[in-house]
Simulated assay, not measured.
Amino acid sequence: MGPELGEVIVEFVRNGPYVKCSAVHAATGVEVSAIGPAAEPRAVERVAIAKLKRALSQR
Score class of each variant (00 low, 15 high):
residue 1 M to I: 14
residue 2 G to F: 01
residue 2 G to T: 12
residue 3 P to G: 14
residue 3 P to S: 14
residue 4 E to H: 12
residue 4 E to Y: 09
residue 4 E to L: 14
residue 5 L to C: 02
residue 6 G to V: 01
residue 6 G to Y: 00
residue 6 G to M: 00
residue 7 E to H: 08
residue 7 E to W: 09
residue 7 E to K: 02
residue 8 V to F: 05
residue 8 V to Y: 08
residue 8 V to R: 04
residue 8 V to G: 01
residue 9 I to W: 06
residue 9 I to G: 08
residue 10 V to M: 06
residue 10 V to P: 03
residue 11 E to G: 11
residue 11 E to Y: 08
residue 11 E to D: 14
residue 12 F to W: 14
residue 12 F to M: 07
residue 12 F to I: 09
residue 13 V to F: 09
residue 13 V to P: 03
residue 14 R to E: 14
residue 15 N to Q: 15
residue 15 N to L: 14
residue 15 N to E: 15
residue 15 N to M: 13
residue 15 N to K: 13
residue 16 G to C: 08
residue 17 P to W: 07
residue 17 P to I: 13
residue 17 P to F: 11
residue 17 P to V: 13
residue 18 Y to M: 15
residue 19 V to T: 04
residue 19 V to E: 04
residue 19 V to Q: 02
residue 20 K to R: 15
residue 20 K to F: 12
residue 20 K to N: 13
residue 21 C to H: 00
residue 21 C to G: 02
residue 22 S to C: 01
residue 22 S to M: 07
residue 23 A to K: 04
residue 24 V to N: 00
residue 24 V to R: 07
residue 25 H to P: 03
residue 25 H to I: 01
residue 25 H to M: 10
residue 25 H to W: 05
residue 25 H to D: 08
residue 25 H to S: 05
residue 26 A to D: 03
residue 26 A to W: 05
residue 26 A to N: 02
residue 27 A to F: 09
residue 27 A to N: 08
residue 27 A to G: 10
residue 27 A to P: 06
residue 27 A to Y: 07
residue 28 T to Q: 04
residue 28 T to C: 11
residue 29 G to M: 07
residue 29 G to P: 04
residue 29 G to R: 03
residue 29 G to S: 09
residue 30 V to S: 11
residue 30 V to Y: 08
residue 31 E to F: 06
residue 32 V to N: 08
residue 33 S to T: 07
residue 33 S to Y: 08
residue 33 S to C: 12
residue 34 A to H: 10
residue 34 A to R: 12
residue 34 A to D: 13
residue 34 A to L: 15
residue 35 I to L: 15
residue 35 I to R: 13
residue 35 I to M: 15
residue 35 I to C: 12
residue 36 G to P: 13
residue 36 G to Y: 04
residue 37 P to K: 14
residue 37 P to C: 12
residue 38 A to Y: 06
residue 38 A to N: 09
residue 38 A to E: 05
residue 38 A to L: 09
residue 38 A to G: 15
residue 39 A to I: 08
residue 40 E to Y: 08
residue 40 E to R: 11
residue 40 E to C: 11
residue 41 P to K: 07
residue 41 P to H: 11
residue 41 P to T: 05
residue 41 P to D: 07
residue 41 P to W: 10
residue 41 P to C: 12
residue 42 R to G: 05
residue 42 R to E: 15
residue 42 R to D: 15
residue 43 A to I: 08
residue 43 A to G: 15
residue 44 V to H: 00
residue 44 V to N: 00
residue 44 V to L: 00
residue 45 E to G: 02
residue 46 R to H: 10
residue 46 R to C: 06
residue 46 R to I: 02
residue 46 R to L: 06
residue 46 R to F: 08
residue 46 R to Y: 05
residue 47 V to K: 07
residue 47 V to E: 12
residue 47 V to N: 11
residue 47 V to F: 04
residue 49 I to F: 04
residue 49 I to Y: 07
residue 49 I to N: 06
residue 49 I to G: 05
residue 51 K to Y: 06
residue 52 L to I: 00
residue 52 L to V: 01
residue 52 L to Y: 01
residue 53 K to T: 01
residue 53 K to D: 03
residue 55 A to S: 04
residue 55 A to I: 00
residue 55 A to P: 00
residue 55 A to G: 04
residue 55 A to F: 01
residue 56 L to H: 00
residue 56 L to N: 00
residue 56 L to W: 02
residue 57 S to E: 04
residue 57 S to D: 10
residue 57 S to Y: 02
residue 58 Q to F: 06
residue 58 Q to Y: 09
residue 58 Q to L: 13
residue 58 Q to T: 05
residue 59 R to T: 02
